[in-house]
C-alpha cells in the first residue's frame, strides 16, 4: 500500500472509532470529571452553589454514616467474594463430571444469573418476610428455630440475608468463568467481581434499603441518598471515593487480564 493510501487509511480508522470515543467521553468521562468538580462545591438544590474546596472531604472524615457504609461495603466484599468463588468452583467441579442431563444442570445453575437483579431482589425480600416468607417457613418445617427470625430486623441477620442473596445471584458469574480452571482467569474474575461488589446498590436498595439503622448501607447507596435529597456536592464526594476505589482495582484488572497483549 502506498503512503497516500496509508494516510487515508488512518483517517478512516479515526472516523470509525470516533462515535465510540465521543459517547464514552460525553457520557462517562465528562460526568466523572463533573462529579470530581462538584465534590469541591456546596451544591444543594435551591441554594446558590459555593466553592468550598475540601470542606466536603473534611465532612467525610467525621461522618459516622460514611464510615459505617465504608465498613459495610468492605465486610460485604470480604465475605461474599470468597464464598462465591468457593461455591462457584464446587459447582464447576460437579459439572465437569460425566453426568446424564448435564446440559439441564448447567442451565439450572445459570438461572440466578439470567434473572434481572431487581426481580431477584424482590423475591429475596419476600423470602425474608417475617410472617409468610419462605425462609421462616423452612425453619419451622425443620424445627430449626424456636420462633420466626426477623431476618431484616437486626444488623447481623440483615447482613447475612444480603450475603445469601448476593451469593445466589452472582455465583454463576464465577462458575462460568472458572470452568476452564485457569489461574489467571480466576484472578481476573476475582478482581472483576470485587469491583462489581464494591459498587453494589440495586440488591440492597430493594431488600433492606440500607437498614436497619443504616447498618447495610453500601457506599453507592449512601451516595445515592444524598443525590436523591438534592445534595449533589456531598453525594459527589462519596461517589468520588467509590470511583477511586474501583479505578485502582480496574488498573489491577487490566494488568492481570493481559488485555494489552490481546490488542497488540
Amino acid at each position: 500500500m502506498g503512503l497516500g493510501n496509508r494516510l487515508s487509511d488512518r483517517r478512516t480508522a479515526h472516523l470509525f472509532i470516533l462515535p465510540l470515543v465521543v459517547v464514552m467521553v460525553v457520557f462517562i468521562v465528562v460526568p466523572v470529571a463533573g462529579t470530581f468538580v462538584t465534590s469541591f462545591f456546596r451544591d444543594i438544590t435551591y441554594l446558590e452553589p459555593a466553592f468550598t474546596f475540601l470542606a466536603n472531604y473534611k465532612r467525610l472524615a467525621s461522618d459516622a454514616g460514611f464510615w459505617q457504609s465504608m465498613r459495610f461495603t468492605s465486610l460485604f466484599v470480604a465475605v461474599c467474594i470468597p464464598v462465591e468463588l468457593l461455591l462457584g468452583m464446587v459447582f464447576a467441579l460437579i459439572l465437569n463430571e460425566r453426568l446424564p442431563a448435564r446440559g439441564v444442570l448447567r442451565a439450572a445453575v445459570l438461572v440466578p444469573w439470567a434473572i434481572p437483579t431487581i426481580v431477584a431482589a424482590r423475591t429475596w425480600e419476600l423470602i425474608y418476610n417475617y410472617s409468610y416468607g419462605l425462609a421462616n417457613w423452612v425453619l419451622a418445617l425443620l424445627h430449626a428455630a424456636p420462633q420466626p427470625v426477623n431476618w431484616l430486623g437486626s444488623p447481623l441477620s440483615a447482613f447475612g440475608a444480603l450475603v445469601i442473596a448476593d451469593v445466589w445471584k452472582t455465583t454463576p458469574c464465577f462458575f462460568r468463568i472458572t470452568l476452564p480452571i485457569l489461574r489467571p482467569v480466576i484472578a481476573v474474575a476475582l478482581i472483576f467481581r470485587t469491583i462489581d461488589t464494591i459498587r453494589i446498590l440495586d440488591l440492597i436498595y430493594v431488600v433492606t434499603d440500607g437498614g436497619p439503622g443504616g447498618s447495610t448501607t453500601s457506599l453507592s447507596l449512601y451516595g445515592y441518598k444524598f443525590f436523591n435529597e438534592g445534595d449533589f456536592g456531598y453525594g459527589s464526594t462519596i461517589a468520588v471515593v467509590v470511583f477511586v476505589m474501583a479505578f485502582l482495582l480496574s488498573m489491577a484488572y487490566l494488568r492481570a487480564g493481559g488485555f494489552k497483549g490481546a490488542v497488540e
Binding site: I17, L20, V21, M24, F27, I28, V29, V30, P31, V32, G34, T35, T38, F192, I195, I198, R199, L201, L219, S220, G223, Y224, F227, F232, G235, S236, I238, A239, V240, V242, F243, A246, F247, L249, S250, M251, Y253, L254, F259, K260, V263
Partner: peptide, 23 residues
C-alpha cells in the same frame, strides 16, 4: 483506545449518575 474503553467500562454508576442528572 481499547484499554481506555475497558478501564472506563468499570466506572461505578454512582460516580456519573449525579452529574448525568444535572446534564
Amino acid at each position: 483506545v481499547p484499554l481506555a474503553v475497558l478501564a472506563f467500562s468499570m466506572f461505578p454508576q454512582i460516580s456519573v449518575v449525579g452529574y448525568l442528572y444535572k446534564l
